[in-house]
Amino acid sequence: MDMSLFRSRRLWIPGLALLVLVGLATLPLYGSLYMTILMTAILMYIILTVSWVIFSGPSGYLSLASAAFFGVGIYTSAILLPTKGAVLPVLVVVLIAGAISFVVAVLVGALTLRLRGIYFAIFTFGLVELIKQVLIFFEISVTGTRGRFIMLVDTHTIFYIMLGIFVVLMLTAYFIRRSKFGLALRSIGENEEAAAHSGVNVTMVKVITFGISAVFMGAAGAVIAMRWTYIDPYIAFNPLFSFLPVLMAIFGGLGQFYGPLIGAAIFAYLEEVLLTKFPYYYMLIFGCVLVGTMLFMPMGLTGLIQRGWRRLIGGQHADA
């Protein structure tokens, strides 16, 4: 068989992407309701992971604020889509959630993206707690509630909106990576002074990208809230949603575009399986898998795939 056809990524990557997309879009036709629900959860994790990677991957700034933007999205949904008297269409609520997350991220980013390394990571993590505590205070003292119920939304509608966010996110990630903007972002991660000296408006590039990644986290939160139907500040601002995207991205491998995507998909599926089969030990097994990844696959899953692929086509070329 002519292997050169497979070697040209130009053909098979978009082809594969299209195939997967068609498979996903028609899932409700052939899959069970459970599969649709499971896929919604997997897509949510992929969205959180890939949008985390958009910013933290190239820039080298470790953000632990994902849960904050995700939670802002969840609460936007909870406030705008109560069980009785919701006025706005579901899709509009998702867009509003994305917009609010963007604004929060830009404000926070403008203040904190001067911090370097561990200081930035700690501050972003603190942000999750801060918003959570403020919200708890507000709910108890002003509205007098603990949690909120959310309007019932059709499972398929939820799935398709999640899928839509996923597609827009992948296109955004692709174009950022390919653009002058993406080049500037990577140069910041490499050497911030040299980037500034090349004429990059360093602060602007960082803040805008931080905002873009938050849009998708917020939108995903708004959608998943409709699945959960009941939320409170502890559910919405669970710090796990800050850590899981980081772990999933590392699991998949940060070197390649598709790494975090595959990592999140497998990881999210694993979580579901472990959670149903071993409800008491799943965190333990999860941890072991992660440690194993760090030890034996330092480049993540994609590192493993690439090694195998290179052996398969017998080429000695370095990756493109």
Binding site: R186, S187, E190, N191, E193, A194, A195, H197
Partner: peptide, 8 residues
């Protein structure tokens, strides 16, 4: 000292 973007 050049200050290249070494991983690009």
């Amino acid at each position: 000292g050049r200050r290249l973007f070494t991983d690009m």
